[in-house]
């Protein structure tokens, strides 16, 4: 009884907050409702006995993905009035197309019939006596290892892409070389100079520290850019 009650409570909050994600006026509120929706989805997972999935949902989606969403939404100043303007204008056309599509789908799905095997195949084959976390692990890392690795490659490509398209190192930025700093002793930096009374530092000829500055370790890209210019210049 309590489980059923909890299910309806969580499901209701989930649906309402999902609705609010779309309809909230303030985009930050939308993201917060999204987080609430994630939470309730996690609670539903818990009720279904998939505690591992529930926790992962919270850790990954709420703890990491939604934080980035929130970042972006807070940083962008989205003018919703402007967006809605277009919405009003295209509403009739969009609604018509939507209704037509829906009608077609209803017609098509009139012949809705699941394959006889579908119900039995719906669940991944489970092994008795294994904890559901262990079973997930077996599915992901043993049965679907190929797909797991492929998705790893996809993420790697996404990362390379993000770096390629956005990283701009001007080559002028100075980097800290921790090893160099640690290796530096007083003898390398300190020079004892006999300063005559009444003479300024400039007159003695010390304007800069005597130690050679660490070379600005320019990134490989910056190097390319410069070299590219030089190359182009020859032609």
């Amino acid at each position: 009884m309590i489980a059923a009650l909890a299910f309806y409570v969580f499901a209701a909050i989930l649906l309402v907050s999902a609705g609010m994600v779309v309809s909230a006026r303030n985009p930050v509120h939308s993201v917060l409702f999204l987080i609430l929706a994630f939470f309730n989805a996690a609670a539903l997972f818990l009720l279904a006995g998939a505690e591992f999935l529930a926790m992962i949902l919270v850790i990954v989606y709420v703890g990491a993905v939604a934080v980035l969403f929130l970042f972006v939404v807070m940083m962008l100043d989205i003018n919703f009035a402007q967006l809605r303007e277009g919405f009003q204008r295209y509403l009739p056309v969009g609604a018509t197309i939507g209704v037509v599509l829906l009608a077609e789908l209803v017609v098509v799905l009139g012949g809705w019939r699941f394959a006889p095997e579908a119900t039995s195949l719906r669940f991944a084959p489970t092994q008795a006596g294994l904890h559901n976390t262990a079973q997930l692990g077996r599915l992901i890392y043993t049965d679907y290892i190929l797909l797991f690795q492929a998705s790893g490659l996809i993420l790697l490509v996404a990362m390379i892409g993000a770096i390629v398209l956005t990283l701009r190192d001007k080559g002028a930025s100075r980097r800290q070389s921790i090893a160099r700093q640690v290796a530096r002793g007083p003898a390398d930096t300190l020079v004892m100079v006999d300063v005559r009374s009444g003479a300024g530092v400039g007159e003695i000829g010390i304007l800069r520290p005597l130690v050679d500055e660490p070379e600005p370790a320019g990134d490989a890209h910056a190097g390319h850019d410069h070299a590219g210019h030089g190359h182009g210049g020859h032609h």
Partner: peptide
């Protein structure tokens, strides 16, 4: 190399 796209990526 000419279009300044010589990046190993």
């Amino acid at each position: 190399e000419h279009a300044n796209l010589r990046r190993f990526e």
